[in-house]
Design a protein around this nucleic acid. Structure first.
Length: 279
DNA sequence: ATCTATTCCTGGCTGC
DNA sequence: TGCAGCCAGGAATAGA
């Protein structure tokens, strides 16, 4: 499932392929994959990619003449560059949108949006209209940019359970189920602990753990759980380094206690009942 | 502010 | 071997 490190990995890999190229013909095979867009993807035809960025779990492209594109991969979304006539047969049923790419007027490759479960979305339109989309506008701060004191204050103001709070994109933008569980384990905080009752020392530890786990996952090219793959089809490696996520019954790397799975806010949650106490 | 339930969607699993 | 039923999961949404 693409979270911040996976989305950032995709952005970095796509950047050199897209910058400077112009959008050619656009083929929308699944209209439901187009978000409540300000405009149809066809409006991007003839516009040139100028920048590719990430905000939370959103991929944001700046195009010429003030246009933009936003993509959310959700569970199974994938973006990649393919030869114009070279979409593999096994991918074909899941290809939802195809953007032709031209350089100096010459047709070349295509940007493919593939998405098995169709939860992902592509939005197109004027940049300002995209940034005004409620979901983007309400995003909380980037977890790698918020400083320790600010983070501590943010926790103090909230009475919800820490796990649910970290998953709330309006609180911090970019964490998902994998990295919240990993960060809470590293900081030795119980996922159901009330945010405002996390002490100063533990809050600082959590802030550091979030930064640490995200940076290490980024260095590993993300985690290939289920079907996350880089734009070139290669997998990330961080799933090997995961300490608790999906490791029901396995021994905790710190104390050997069995990792436990519970449900918090309708989300599968893995933690070590001995290292992470709710007291 | 916060909680719960529901919806979207499909591959993969379980149980018969 | 086949089939029904269930589940995961991010985020929007509605309602409490």
């Amino acid at each position: 499932m693409p979270e911040l490190p996976e989305v950032e990995t995709v952005v970095r890999a796509l950047r050199p392929h897209l910058i400077g190229r112009e959008v050619g013909e656009v083929d929308v095979l699944a209209p439901s994959s187009i978000g409540g867009s300000p405009m149809s993807p066809n409006a991007l035809q003839g516009k040139r990619f100028e920048a590719l960025k990430r905000r939370g779990k959103y991929i944001l492209a700046d195009l010429s003449e003030g246009m933009g594109m936003a993509v959310h991969l959700r569970m199974t979304g994938w973006l990649g560059i393919r030869p114009r006539s070279g979409i593999p047969k096994e991918d074909a049923p899941y290809v939802r949108v195809v953007f032709g790419l031209r350089r100096r007027g010459r047709e070349g490759e295509v940007l493919v949006f593939r998405d098995i479960r169709r939860f992902g979305r592509v939005w197109c339109g004027p940049r300002e209209a995209l940034l005004a989309l409620p979901a983007l506008k309400k995003l909380g701060p980037e977890p790698l940019e918020v400083d320790c004191e600010a983070f501590r204050r943010m926790l103090k103001q909230r009475r919800g359970r820490i796990k649910s709070l970290l998953l709330d994109q309006t609180f911090v933008a970019g964490l998902g189920n994998i990295y919240t569980d990993e960060a809470l384990f590293a900081a030795r905080i119980h996922p159901q602990k009330q945010a405002c009752r996390i002490g100063r020392v533990a809050a600082d530890r959590l802030h550091a753990s979030i930064g640490d786990v995200l940076r290490r996952a980024l260095d590993a090219g993300g985690s290939s759980i289920d079907d996350f793959r880089h734009p070139d089809g290669s997998p990330g490696w961080f799933q090997r380094a995961l300490q608790v996520y999906g490791r029901d019954g396995e021994a905790c790397g710190r104390c050997e206690t069995g990792i436990k799975r519970i449900v918090v806010g309708q989300r599968g949650t893995w933690f070590c009942p001995r290292c992470q106490r709710n007291g």
